[in-house]
Design a protein around this nucleic acid. Structure first.
Lengths: 147, 147
DNA sequence: TGCCTGACTTCTGTTTGTCTAAGTCAGCCT
DNA sequence: AGGCTGACTTAGACAAACAGAAGTCAGGCA
């Protein structure tokens, strides 16, 4: 098996509902029933996904209390979870371009300062914008050789 | 169901093996048995995924012939498939940061011109680099209202 | 003509993901 | 003390994803 960081990522967010839950968390959802309703999955699936993502360190279950209410728990993104944002915006960008129906995208992510839609760009560590054709794939230190 | 371009994307590449097959295609794999071997899945799964991705327009099945060999078919990325590269590089970036074991990443994507590792950055259409915290989510024209 | 090989397809069985429906449980409020 | 509500958990059924092994098929070649 030609393993790779991509596969490692998929082990964490490998199901449709996991990515959707994470998307909602990034979009600001915090409470259990909101995840259920907005992701459009059943309660058992939501509970399982939230538990897994919490165990994997992308979400954190923190207590909170609204005045006059009993204490509850909400799910907050950790920095590990926040680092997943480029993946979600990349999916959003691709889906908006290729899979949107006539009505246009239901949700839009925009830059708070200027209002322009956000997406992602491929960029190297030296700061150059990189064209997809100019990416070279090479063996890294942890390569498991492919026979 | 709070649908969204993210969900539309996931409908196309919703399974673990679909993303892995697409990753391999982006990394340069073309032939059936190479997909099977490098993705590390069984032949039936590979065949199903290649067929689905071809039907969805991310891959194209084109005939080719090596000298002295009979005609075969290989799978080439279409422009729709190439546009998926940011998603794969975003997963690669996240996995390299958070899920890599002691050996380091097995594969590295680098900028051909300067050799630096590539990743993705969130960027708005006006060209600003956008901090994840500065992204605003708003309703777009196609929003299905959430009760 | 028949062999050979890469590219699938078919079959069978297991695991995983998901649903609906029906509990359970904690703790503030009356 | 008992009700209510949001947050789960449990149970049972079903569909999809996937593996492994074996079979099919096309077409260049000897």
């Amino acid at each position: 098996m030609a393993n790779c960081a991509v596969a490692a990522s998929i082990d964490v967010v490998g199901t449709r509902s996991a990515i959707l839950v994470l998307r909602e968390a990034i979009f600001g959802t915090r409470r259990f029933e909101d995840f259920v309703r907005r992701v459009g999955i059943g309660e058992p699936a939501a509970a399982a996904r939230l538990k897994e993502l919490t165990a994997a360190g992308l979400l954190e279950r923190v207590p909170y209390q609204e005045p006059g209410q009993r204490t509850r728990h909400e799910y907050q993104l950790t920095s590990k979870g926040m680092d997943f944002q480029p993946v979600v915006y990349a999916l959003l960008q691709w889906g908006s371009k290729w899979e949107t129906d006539e009505a246009g995208p239901p949700l839009r992510a925009t830059h708070r300062d200027c209002g322009a839609p956000v997406g992602v760009r491929i960029r190297c560590d030296d700061g150059h914008d990189v064209d997809p054709d100019d990416v070279a794939i090479e063996a890294g230190p942890g390569l498991i050789t492919i026979p």
